[in-house]
Design a protein around this nucleic acid. Structure first.
Lengths: 211, 211
DNA sequence: TAGATTGTTAATCGATTAACAATC
DNA sequence: TAGATTGTTAATCGATTAACAATC
């Protein structure tokens, strides 16, 4: 297990740093300072240094961070250096669109770490259909079994609110450990399981406050 | 303008409370305690009370909160009591799926506050097509003008990363004030404009850390 | 009245910012 | 060496939790 628990806000920023570094990497820049990285990522230089220092000493005083090696370190920390098997649970219109989005990105970018390898739906009419001619939709009853067989670690949840908790429970039973939940429902997960809510309506409702 | 600035984390929880209250409302429960609401929403009773107390005294000691009136108050605070005009910018597969999701929810639930009334795309072949036979896709050049004419306040951004900043700028020029950004790009907005990032890859990358 | 639960204050906890010695 | 920038410590800021008087 991990020796210390980095705050969620730091993890979020690390993901942004990693995305930002790609630009420097593509531009073949050798070094980047916390100042520059912060600027482009939208954070202060002090925060960049503090965040990175939580995981090691990656910089050179007076010079900055080596773009390539920092990118490697961050990929390692964020597990972006390994293939992660993703399952789609709920193959409605939204789910299919999201899954296609991930699959296509993986087809364009060869080091894209997220591979959609399973899809599930409760509707018998959808069973056997394939996403992008690749991923076959399987019945919801198979969730635990298939997730275990295929070593799925990450699930995208796009079922109706009423079904969310039960499919997540089934996925956890199969060994899944992280969930991106688009269902407008509160889903409880045990210690050690990660879940992020991405319910569109909730996001829009939050934004509405600022109007 | 608003007299005090509630922290973003509080706004997020308010949106959850509002969603949670619907369940009590449908069950025709008259009162709910901070204990019960917190339980169902996934927060502590103390936090519920503190959050609500920031906006007024909505409860009765010894009794709890009147479900209906708290719901009304929260709707007012969150601007869920008024129709909010939403534009979709970027009518690719993901955008269309998200817009349909919002439109259909509005068709099912008559007090759903988000109304998609405009859609834009840069692809000439898509101009004139309609989402759910209702919302016509217009050219990207029309963003500022149409947003102003139709009084759009909220935009869902589903364009490629390279186009994100410019369409947001155009929307702001037209008077839009809040953005839900699905593009994998950092978008800068001036003071007073709200923007939430909902980039799927970023969300998945964050989750990957916990594996 | 007795029991329950709020609204609020004080205590704790954690994250951000500022500053600077270390050092490339 | 001189200039630049890191890693880290201390100071500040803000959010959460605990506790309880007020009161329905």
């Amino acid at each position: 297990m991990r020796q210390f628990k980095a705050p969620d806000v730091v993890v979020r920023r690390l993901a942004v740093y990693l995305r930002t570094l790609e630009q420097y990497s593509e531009a073949d820049r050798q070094y980047v300072s916390s100042q520059e990285l912060g600027q482009l990522a939208g954070f202060t230089p002090a925060q960049v240094r503090k965040d990175l220092a939580m995981f090691g000493e990656f910089g050179k005083q007076g010079v900055g961070y080596d773009v390539h090696s920092l990118q490697q370190e961050l990929k390692r920390i964020m597990h972006a250096d390994q293939v992660l098997n993703v399952a789609l649970i709920g193959a409605g219109e939204l789910g299919i669109a999201l899954a296609r989005y991930i699959i296509r990105r993986g087809q364009r970018q060869d080091d894209y770490p997220f591979h959609v390898i399973a899809a599930f739906d409760a509707d018998p009419h959808k069973i056997g259909l394939r996403l992008e001619r690749l991923v076959e939709i399987q019945p919801a009853e198979m969730i635990s079994e298939v997730i275990r067989e295929l070593a799925v670690s990450l699930c995208v949840i796009t079922v109706p609110a009423t079904a969310a908790q039960q499919v997540v429970d089934a996925a956890i039973a199969g060994g899944a450990r992280a969930f991106l939940n688009f269902a407008p429902a509160k889903v409880s997960v045990p210690e050690g399981i990660a879940l992020t809510n991405a319910d569109m309506t909730l996001e829009l409702q939050q934004l509405a406050y600022y109007l």
